[in-house]
């Protein structure tokens, strides 16, 4: 009798420890990355590291601006492509598609989310690169290999489809039927109801989905690395090659550690990613949980 209660108490402490340990991972990762990037932060400064465009590791010059811009270009293109498509798809799935069609569409979105990043990369190389090289780029520029921020953006866009569609659908599903009925019974048609009532109500949720998708796109490594060209210059058009931060880490780690400060510079890149993604995630989760609470009460 007493033994059972003791067992319960001990297990409770054990679980507490495990929970705290896994949550504190956030803190530990942050501290670990910071400590390892400290040497380079001390040598230069946050400001110069982030704004300098000179990347000459052999001379000890580490400017992250091209990589930051590479990340922003790729992410920006991905969002511009994915957002309208996903918004329309989510609206179609939640508002128009009938039972049977819904049962067909939703599993495919889930299947898409299960495909590993490297497969997206292979697909990008096999399909998107030739498409850009032979059919899209010739209309705009004289020559392109196809390996470009546009290719990275398209591949990323497809990768974040499932994320945006599922979050936006979830948000749309929480909008009460009574609200839609009220609009419909005033004589509005379905599209007007969507435009004037549903989208307005769902706006915070859509913003949260975009913020999450952005942070996901920031961190995506291998698929982007495979199609992006990886050239450490600031891109000026969508057909230029780019070199996003995660690709920088993945391409160089373990290879050039003989160069002083190089590993510290790469950890700084990881730290930068970690901080940006942490912020974005917290923002979107707070928006989403507020939304949930508001709709629950």
């Amino acid at each position: 009798m007493q033994l059972r209660i003791l067992k319960d108490k001990i297990l409770s402490k054990l679980m507490l420890v495990l929970t705290l340990a896994s949550v504190s991972l956030l803190l530990i990762i942050g501290i670990g990355l910071y400590l390892h990037s400290a040497p380079i932060i001390e040598k230069s400064s946050w400001g110069t590291l982030v704004t300098s465009s000179v990347w000459k590791p052999l001379r000890g010059l580490f400017g992250f601006f091209p990589f930051i811009m590479g990340t922003l270009w790729v992410t920006g293109i991905a969002i511009i492509i994915a957002l309208p498509l996903c918004l329309l798809t989510a609206l179609f799935i939640t508002e128009y598609a009938q039972g049977g069609l819904k049962r067909i569409l939703v599993p495919f979105v889930n299947l898409l989310s299960g495909i590993p990043p490297v497969i997206f990369g292979v697909w990008g190389v096999l399909f998107i690169i030739p498409l850009i090289q032979n059919h899209i780029a010739p209309h705009f520029v004289e020559f392109s290999t196809g390996y470009s921020v546009l290719a990275g953006g398209i591949v990323l866009a497809v990768m974040i489809f499932p994320l945006i569609v599922s979050i936006v659908s979830e948000v749309l599903n929480t909008i009460p039927q009574e609200l839609k009925d009220a609009s419909l019974s005033l004589g509005a048609n379905k599209w007007e109801t969507i435009k004037k009532v549903i989208l307005r109500k769902a706006l915070p949720g859509i913003i949260a989905a975009v913020v999450l998708a952005v942070s996901r796109a920031f961190g995506e490594t291998i698929a982007v690395l495979m199609v992006c060209g990886n050239n450490a210059v600031v891109p000026h058009s969508v057909f230029d090659a780019g070199y996003p931060l995660p690709a920088l880490i993945a391409n160089n780690y373990g290879e050039m550690l003989s160069i002083p400060l190089y590993d510290s510079a790469l950890m700084f890149a990881a730290l930068l990613l970690f901080i940006i993604i942490l912020l974005f995630n917290i923002i979107s989760r707070v928006i989403l949980s507020r939304l949930e609470r508001k709709l629950a009460s």
């Binding site: 949550v23 956030l26 990762i29 990355l33 880490i249 990613l273 970690f274 949980s289």
Partner: peptide, 16 residues
């Protein structure tokens, strides 16, 4: 929320 945030940390950061 903390686990949701951990879920959002990209695998390259976990790798590093």
């Amino acid at each position: 929320v903390a686990f949701d945030v951990l879920f959002g940390i990209p695998s390259i950061v976990y790798g590093a």
